[in-house]
């Protein structure tokens, strides 16, 4: 019998090891799996490479993971925001590495990683500093840059509804990178607001097919990053 439901968020992330590459879903706080991130902080794994669009805000979620000195390198498209303080300080001090990737290239690199495509050519970033040192090739008279797929050891994702097979649906713009990240990791770990019986999600409406998911944990009332930030909260508390 297939049952991907695990009992606790701590158990779900327990084997994330030092040096792992971890993809974290979310665009800003929408779709950010804050409970899974906080359990990764509890676990304390170090020297992580984190793939996520942003670097978090305030002193919770991804920002707290960075502040806890667990992240050696960020691969992202937009490492600052209104309330982003942790990453900029460490970056200016030379204490965290940044690989800046155009947002569409980041999405496609993750998609390629999950789809068994090692590399691809894209027009984005040609003639800019982000294409320097990379292979450029012309197709039909237009220049394209070679970009490589990204795979991860773990992906951490938040979804709206899941079943025991790991079939997932998302809510609104919380979907963003998560369906791609589910495909690109050896172990995909999901926190779900709702767990339903197999068959209750309309097969036509499944966004992430369960084959891409390894573990699902039920977090019925997730915390909201913006509210924690507004309240000046930190993690660990």
């Amino acid at each position: 019998m297939i049952n991907k439901l695990v009992r606790s968020d701590a158990e779900a992330v327990a084997d994330i090891h030092d040096g792992a590459t971890v993809m974290i879903g979310g665009f800003g706080e929408a779709g950010s799996p804050i409970e899974l991130i906080h359990r990764l902080i509890d676990l304390g794994s170090k020297n992580l490479t984190v793939v996520s669009n942003n670097t978090g805000s305030g002193n919770v979620g991804i920002a707290a993971l960075i502040e806890n000195r667990q992240v050696a390198k960020m691969i992202c498209s937009f490492p600052r925001s209104t309330n982003s303080v942790v990453f900029p300080e460490l970056y200016r001090a030379g204490e965290i590495e940044l690989e800046l990737v155009p947002q569409g290239t980041l999405a496609e690199r993750i998609r390629a990683g999950g789809a068994g495509i090692p590399a691809f050519y894209t027009p984005s970033s040609v003639n800019t500093p982000l294409a320097e040192g990379k292979e450029i090739r012309e197709f039909d008279g237009q220049a394209y840059v070679l970009e490589y797929g990204i795979k991860a050891d773990f992906s951490l994702v938040k979804c709206h509804t899941a079943d025991r097979y790991g079939n997932l649906t998302y809510h609104a713009t919380a979907r963003n990178f998560s369906p791609l990240m589910c495909t690109a990791a050896t172990t995909t770990i999901v926190q779900a607001k709702h767990i339903v019986e197999a068959g209750e999600i309309d097969p036509e409406a499944v966004v992430t097919p369960g084959i891409f998911v390894n573990r699902v944990v039920h977090i019925s009332d997730p915390e909201h990053e913006s509210i924690l930030v507004a309240n000046g909260e930190r993690y660990p508390r």
């Binding site: 665009f27 929408a30 779709g31 947002q103 999405a107 998609r111 713009t173 369906p179």
Partner: peptide
């Protein structure tokens, strides 16, 4: 909280709107 724009501001979805993941979004763009 999970319905925002690229500037991370709260927005609404119109009648006839659709949601999609980032690879589809940048397929529209690129």
């Amino acid at each position: 909280i999970e319905l925002i724009n690229a500037g991370k501001k709260y927005v609404t979805a119109t009648k006839g709107a659709c949601f999609f993941h980032h690879a589809d979004s940048f397929t529209m763009i690129r």
